[in-house]
Design a protein around this nucleic acid. Sequence first.
DNA 1: AGGATTTTGTAGTGAACAATACAAAAAAGG
DNA 2: CCTTTTTTGTATTGTTCACTACAAAATCCT
Lengths: 206, 206
Amino acid sequence: MNNTKKAGRPRKFNRDEALLAAVNVFWAKGYDGASLKDLTEGMGINGPSLYATFGDKHALYLQAIDRYSTNDACAPLVAFESEQDITAAVRAFMVAAIDYATHHKSGARGCFLSACVATSAGEVEGVQPVLRQAIEDTDKRLAARFDLEKEKGTLAANFPSLERARLMFDLRQGHVFRARAGLDGDTMLSDLDQRTAMVLRFDEGV
Amino acid sequence: MNNTKKAGRPRKFNRDEALLAAVNVFWAKGYDGASLKDLTEGMGINGPSLYATFGDKHALYLQAIDRYSTNDACAPLVAFESEQDITAAVRAFMVAAIDYATHHKSGARGCFLSACVATSAGEVEGVQPVLRQAIEDTDKRLAARFDLEKEKGTLAANFPSLERARLMFDLRQGHVFRARAGLDGDTMLSDLDQRTAMVLRFDEGV
DNA sequence: AGGATTTTGTAGTGAACAATACAAAAAAGG
DNA sequence: CCTTTTTTGTATTGTTCACTACAAAATCCT
């Protein structure tokens, strides 16, 4: 088979798009499960370009984690911070997380950090500190909003915002895990009103 | 180097111990990250024995998941079902899960199902249904106890036990994720009393 | 005790892995 | 329009992968 491709050269690929595609490949297959072949095909570039642009597979992985952390992972956070009403904000955070975990356009389910990155945390150099930092940053960012609500008087002032933040984030964790397992998002959504109220009245009657 | 080992032959290995060791290897390194070398070394057997006893790597993985699901993963469940008082039971469930996730004797952190198995769910044949079933079974088993409490009158009768079960399980999910990321167990334990009360008063004031 | 069965260690299979050398082809500048 | 620089496709590197033949050694049964 004389496979004589004309060898047309497309112009320089977009670095950020390629990195985003790498996230999706890692997300779907895991760090070890994603081969260079999977990555180059998914990213639409070839081996040498990948190595020239991102270093090696390990370096690409760390950059993919960073890209996800500072963009995609923030979607529920942004939804949370955008809503004026705190009840709507909490609900928006949960809805965004569930929707993202069950209807991502790449077809991958759950959360890149919760599944793929968490698995590699104990095995791949440099991953665990990044994951840990991502969690702590999210906790703090959620808590900041709760602090603001305390000042406004919409939340009890004597209850630690960080504890409330951890609660909300841990509930999200349950959702993305169920999504990864293939469970339906509707059941999660049907529990949302109860859970939202719970997060906001976490301090009462204890 | 004339490496003349005397080739002493130990007796037949214990199948269940080997399988448990396989769980720990997969847990620490993930499905793709665990090489046959890792597995045979960790299990204390050699390649041909592994294949004769468990089939291939994929079959071993499914057996490892099953072994974990019907034994280790049940530890918090057993703790939950053993305690007479429902408050103590919920707390015991959480404590067992956190302790297991942060102090497992193999050194692996988090939960085998939540990290390793969840990552492979979208990639390895036959894993997702098993994971899904494990979640649903746990939900139901937790709900059964809540139903009993309803009959005893210690829990509100008009609130669905399954929703309460999902809540408790999702909180656990947050804990094991934090443990996997290397976070300290003490912070999680310090939140426990609040969370326990919340699970049991989930129905109130909503 | 001694032959039959089972399990082991050693060695090695082809295939897939991550990573690279090299030259053709596109883009840029005067 | 021709030279310089950059990016690409092809081909190939040594290594590791999952998996298996084969024969020696330990256990079992009568």
